[in-house]
Design a protein around this nucleic acid. Sequence first.
DNA 1: GCTCTGGTAGTTTTT
DNA 2: CTACCAGAGC
Length: 764
Amino acid sequence: MQNLLHNLNEEQLAAVTLPPQSALILAGAGSGKTRVLTTRIAWLIQTGQVSPSGILAVTFTNKAAKEMLTRLSAMLPINTRGMWIGTFHGLCNRLLRTHHRDAALPQTFQILDTQDQLSAIKRLIKAHNVDDEKFPPKEVMYFINGAKDQGLRADKIDAYNADERKKVELYQLYDEQCQREGVVDFAELLLRSYELLSRNQPLREHYQQRFRHILVDEFQDTNDLQYKWLKLLAGVPGQHGSALFAVGDDDQSIYAFRGANVGNMSAFEREFQVKNLIKLEQNYRSHGHILDAANQLISNNSKRLGKNLRTDAGQGEPVRVYEASSDLAEAQWIVEETKNLIADGAERREIAVLYRSNAQSRVIEHALFSAGIPYHVYGGLRYFQRAEVKHAIAYLQLMDNPHNDSAFLRVVNFPTRGIGLRSIEALQAAADQYGISLYAAVPHVAGKAGSSLAGFVRLIEGARFETQQMALPELVRVVLEHSGLLTHYQTEKEGADRIENLEQMVSAATQFVSEEGYGQGAPAHLGPAAQAQSGAAVINQDGIEILDADAPLPAVMSPLSAFLSHASLEAGDNQATVGQDAVQMMTVHSAKGLEFNNVFITGLEEGLFPHESSSREHDGVEEERRLMYVAITRARQRLYMCFAQTRMLHGQTRYNMKSRFFDELPEESLKWLSAKVQSHWFASPKSAWDAAPVLGSDNAIAQKIAHKSAGSGWRIGESVQHAKFGEGVIVNIEGSGPSARAQINFGNVGMKVLDLSIAKLERI
DNA sequence: GCTCTGGTAGTTTTT
DNA sequence: CTACCAGAGC
C-alpha cells in the first residue's frame, strides 16, 4: 500500500484517501486526474473498505475506460473482474441486457448509432407524410435527443405552439417505432435504464447496496440525465447512500452544445452536501509561461469554481505569436516552424496543430503535404461507420433481430437483387396494415415482388441456420460471402479498400471474442440462458429470480449480440496510419485529454476563435474561452499561436481581427514573432512584394488589395481605432479621394460603412 | 438501378 | 470553395 500512495503529492494523497463520503475533486489540466481516480479505487480495495464488485466507475469514452482498467490492473494483483468500469452507455447496455424483460426490451435489442437514428427519423417523417422542409429530420433528431438527455419522455414535454406539438408527436411516434423494431438510440440506453431503476424498487436497491463507491470521470461533461442516473444509483446521501466521487474541471467544460451541464458540479456539491472538495492545482505537464497564459486567460470567466495551476518546472519558453498575412501564409509558417522543430530533434508525433473547426485543416494539410511532412488528421469516418462495414453489420443485425427495419432497408436490395421501390412500398403497406416489421410482412406480399422478397428472407434464414454452431469470426466470414457483399465489391473498380475493410471484420470479430472472454469456439448465436450460471441472484418485482448484471459478458449476451453492441458503442479507429510518426492535426475539442511537447493553436481570429456563433449563445464566449484554455494546456514545452489577416472561408475572403483572447494573455509570457503593427506589408504595393512571407498567392492577394486601396490612404486588412466603435478591420473600400467609404468590421459592434473623409480613424 | 446535376449549407463530438 | 443530398434522367 505504501507503494500505492508513494508518489502522490499532498493534494492527490488527500483525494485518494478521503473517507467514504461524497467528494468533488477539482482536477486541473495535467494534474494527475486519472491517477487519482485509479489509485483511489486501488486504495479502497487494498485497504479492504470495499470489494471489487462494490466499485462502479464511469467515463465518457471507451478510451478513458480502457486506460483506467489498464492502470488498475497494473496497480492491483487481483483481476479487475467484478468491477463495473465503463462508459455510461456501455454500463447501461449491460443493465438493459440483463434486465431486458423488466426494461420491456427484446433480449437482442440493437443500438442505433447517430446515422441509423437519423435514417430512422427520415423514414418516420416520410411514413407520416410530414413536411420535411418544415421539420428537417436533423432538427427533429436534436429535439428528441435533447429531450431524452434531460430525462423527458414525449408525454412530459410542454409544447407551446403547433410546431412544438408536432415535434412532440414525432418524438412519441419515433419511440413507438423503435419499440416495434427492437432498437434503442444512445440517449435511450440512458433513459431506459434510468426508468428501469426508478420504477423497479428491488432492482434499484440491489444495485444501490452493491455499489458502495461510484466514481465519475469528467464530471463537468455530464448531462442532466446522466446526473439523475448517478443520483439514482448512489441513493440518498447519509442514508445508506453510496459514496459518489466526482472528478472534473469546470474550466474544461466544452460540451454544452451536446447537453453537458457544468451546473451539475455545483448542484452535486449542494445536493450531496459535499464536505470534501479538493483542488488538484499542481500541474505536471506545462512550463510556467504556458500555465501563466492559461491561468490569466481563464480568469476572465465569471462562472468558475476557482482554481489556479502551478508548476515546479521553470518558466520555460514564452508563447510564440505570429501574425500571418493570409491563411496560406499561416500554413506556410507552421510548416517552416515544424521543419525547425524536427531539425532540432523533435518527434513529429510530439507536434500538434490545433484548430477550432475542421474546415481549417485543408490549407494546413496541403502545406504539410507539399513540404513532404507526414501528418495525421484526427476525426473522420470510424471503422464501423464505413458504408461497406455498416452493410455487413446490417446483415448480422437481421440475423439477430429481423425486426430492425433500418437494417432491413439498408441491405434488402444491396447488393441489388431486383427489389425496387415498388416492392418496398407494397411491403411497407402490408407491414403498416398488420402493425408488424417489414421482415415479418414479407409473406403478406403477393406476386413477383413477394417472391424476390421471400428470396431475401430465405437468404437471412439460411445464413442463420447454417451458422448455428459456428463461432463468431466464422459466422462473419460466412455472412460476408453469403450476402454477396464481397462479390459485389470485387466487381467494383474502386472496391479494393472496401474489401479490405470487410475482411478486417473477421479479425475484428476474432479479437473481440478473445478480449471479451468468450470461448474461442463459443457458438455465436448461443444465448445467455444456456451459459448463465454465475452471478448473484436478485428478485424482481414479480418475485422472479433474475441475474445480477455482474456476470461476465457471455452470461448476459450471445457473442453475436455483444459484437453488434460493440460495433455501435465503440466505432473503432478512424485511420490505419496510427503507428507512424506524424504531425498530429485535430480540432481543439478532440485534443482534450491529450498532451504534446509542441503545440500550434491556429486561426486565432474573431469569428473563428471565438467562433462567431458563440456570441449568440448564452455564455457562448465563456465556453470558447474554456476551449482556448484547453488548447493552451495541451502544450508541455513550446506553444505557438497564430492568426491570419485574410482567410478564405466558404469561397469568400474574410478579414478578421485578431482574437480577443490575445488581450487576455499576460504580455510578458508572449513573444511576437511578427511585427505587432498590423498590415505592415500592405503599406505599399512594393513592400508587399518583399515583406509577405513566401507563397506566391499572397502576393496576388496583396496586389489586388493594394490596387483596390489606391488613393484612399487606407488599405483593406488594416486595423483601425474608432472613437465610438472601438477596434475594427477594414474589409472593403469603395470609391476614391474625398468620397471614399470604407466597410469596417468592428467585431462585436458589427459591420459599419464609414465615410473616410469624415470618420476619425486611427491606425493601430 | 445507377449516374449526373443542381441546389444548398457550411462549429465543436462521443456514445 | 466543396461536400453532400435529393431528384431527374438514361
